[in-house]
Amino acid sequence: MDSYIMIGFSVFLGAIFVGGAILTSKLLAFYTPAGQRKVQPYECSEEPIGDARIRFKVAFYIFALLFLLFDIESLLLFPCMKIFRAVVTDQAGGIGTSVLFAELFVFIFILFFGFIYAWRKGVLVWE
């Protein structure tokens, strides 16, 4: 618990650091009135046409889903893998040692086949 208060405190320190930098800049900066040309978005000195927030291909959405799967998978693996060596190499462990090992293989293989399926279906093609 104490450690996490420490992290909170360091976020606070970071905020002071950043806030200080911005405040100093506010105090020191030379302000000139910003005209209409000055505040216009930079586009190689052309007049910007249309909205900047363009839409993206739906393909990016599918591989974002794939990423979510992998990310959750690695989060699930973290605690399992922390005890993996202790459990698997435990000589007196009996059947439990092989079960964890087999479970890991099944888990990764299902994920791997899912990945290959997505690949064959053309999710990983960008043009």
Binding site: A34, V39, A52
Partner: peptide, 13 residues
């Protein structure tokens, strides 16, 4: 140099 520059917020942001 960075600190003495104006903090400009462009239009459309």
């Amino acid at each position: 140099k960075l600190m003495t520059k104006q903090l400009l917020i462009p239009s459309g942001t």
